[in-house]
Nucleic acid binder design. Structure first.
Lengths: 285, 285
DNA sequence: TCTTTCCATACCCGCACGGTATCGCTGCGC
DNA sequence: GCGCAGCGATACCGTGCGGGTATGGAAAGA
């Protein structure tokens, strides 16, 4: 079985994305002819046509589309491998936890304390990032992340549930719904909702949200409202009110890490987090 | 950022598994010196020591252990990519479904019929394999597989639940428990249980099971008993009896496929299977 | 038909990969 | 304690392949 090389996958990905050999070659910092040859050779070795070379346009074949998707996972895995190996070899081992400021449900201090009490606990480095935390995990930049189910895509990650919360509508006190004791999703028709980085949903406009303070500020300025987990209550400004959204799916705070991770430090952290979560929800350690 | 090449990962994996440069080189069909150099170069580029060269022994460093695990996922992804691409490019497109004979809960005929009624349905090729079906999926040899939760490790796979069943203890009619109307797991202490391929649990002895007929035969011969999903009832021989195991976790038959799969043929198959499963369990389509 | 565009082909070069020979260290046996 | 054997590292060399430049050739637009 002929071996598939990373270099070939990088080349193919460039061409498949650009659908143009010249531009792809430029992007790769090389000349066009060797790129053409590399792709031909790849096709020969796979015994499959990957591209349809029309006179004036290049298109992906069915097999090419498959390889493009597969290539991305291979390349992601490869760079994650490099990063994780490098981090494992660092002289100062640390556990990198990706969090969203304000998105920890108030559990984080207790979890960190519990973890530091574990034998062999490493220093924990917090990586604050409002969006893209799952990407940090998949890229091997972080060891674990606090995410929300079902908001985040958790495929390929192992998880530990920490806290399930109902959701609140957060709005300025002058908002038309501010007097209600409860709302439902239908009440929100036409309301401007925040645009989260990474999620390119239609219907949401305005600036991307990168920071909780920014979001609350924009809400106070009546530029938008937001549906947030109820643990947000402790961080609200005076000029904002929050009421339960009856039919919003409950959101679960989960600790997530790359599947197959074996580091004992991570295992200890998961144990600590599970213990803290168990106490909060009353199930005991 | 220096790029990590597949060839280097293959080399490193060989050395890390053999813990011996000479044997690794032999396994790779090459001489030892270039292998040594390649590993050194890999370490230099990563800036990390991967192996501890003792005078007489080679050992993995912490980072080396990480890279070994990561390498395996990268190499698996790469060969799966090649296989999936090749299969997508075949002139005769088919959908390959990995099944275990007798492990379909009786749903398979209906699912196949329902699928063939879908527009654009492909011929379905059944790949019978008693164990290792999940590996077939991960290796890209099959498009989908019928698996059992929680028996199989489903991380990295997307799934559709089909059928949840209680489990039965299957034994010869002369067995000491054959008269019982129900048993619990404690009753099975000391009973010889089948050794499934792939699962190397302690406590189970005797030949590996590769085939349902073989298993039932061995049970009839009083060589072992087995805990199986209740849909097995229809396939029992006269000389075997089955009684419910009260505290055995229910087992769910799931249709599983590689995450990120986008093939419309697979999507149609999942739809068909879900519809059939919905009818059986009474939830409607 | 002439031009432009863009991929393929032809040809050349340098390097890095792989091979052989050998060194150097270390642990073991006599 | 000396020699030997095992094993990884180093030295050196040849060649195949990855990449570059120049050019061909087909097709679409003017």
């Amino acid at each position: 079985m002929e071996r598939l090389e990373v270099r070939e996958l990088v080349y193919f990905t460039a061409v498949a994305e650009e659908l143009h050999f010249g531009r792809a070659a430029a992007r790769l910092g090389m000349a066009q002819p060797p790129l053409s040859r590399a792709i031909q050779q790849l096709e020969r070795r796979l015994g499959v046509a990957l591209l349809e070379r029309g006179s004036r346009r290049v298109a992906l074949t069915e097999a090419g589309a498959v390889l493009l998707r597969e290539s991305r996972t291979v390349l992601d895995a490869a760079s994650a491998a490099a990063r994780r190996t490098r981090r494992a070899g660092r002289a100062d081992p640390r556990l990198v936890l990706a969090i969203k400021p304000g998105g920890d449900g108030g559990l984080l201090p207790a979890i960190l304390d519990a973890y530091q009490a574990e034998p062999g606990a490493l220093p924990v480095e917090l990586m604050c990032s409002f969006g893209e935390r799952e990407v940090l995990l998949r890229e091997g930049r972080a060891d674990a992340a606090l995410l929300h189910r079902p908001h985040h895509d958790l495929t390929g990650l192992d998880t530990q549930d920490l806290l399930t919360e109902t959701q609140l509508l957060v709005m300025p006190s002058s908002h038309r719904l501010a007097g209600r004791t409860r709302v439902c999703l239908n009440d929100l028709a036409g309301e401007p909702l925040p645009r989260w980085p990474g999620a390119s949903e239609g219907g949401a406009h305005g600036p991307e949200i990168h920071d909780l303070g920014q979001l609350l500020h924009l809400i106070a300025l009546r530029r938008m409202v937001a549906v947030l987990p109820s643990s947000i209550r402790g961080q609200l400004r005076d000029d904002l009110v929050a009421v339960p959204v009856d039919d919003a799916e409950p959101t679960t705070l989960v600790l997530a890490w790359p599947e197959h991770a074996t580091s004992p430090a991570l295992a200890a952290f998961v144990r600590a987090a599970a213990a803290v979560a168990g106490k909060v929800t009353g199930h005991g350690g």
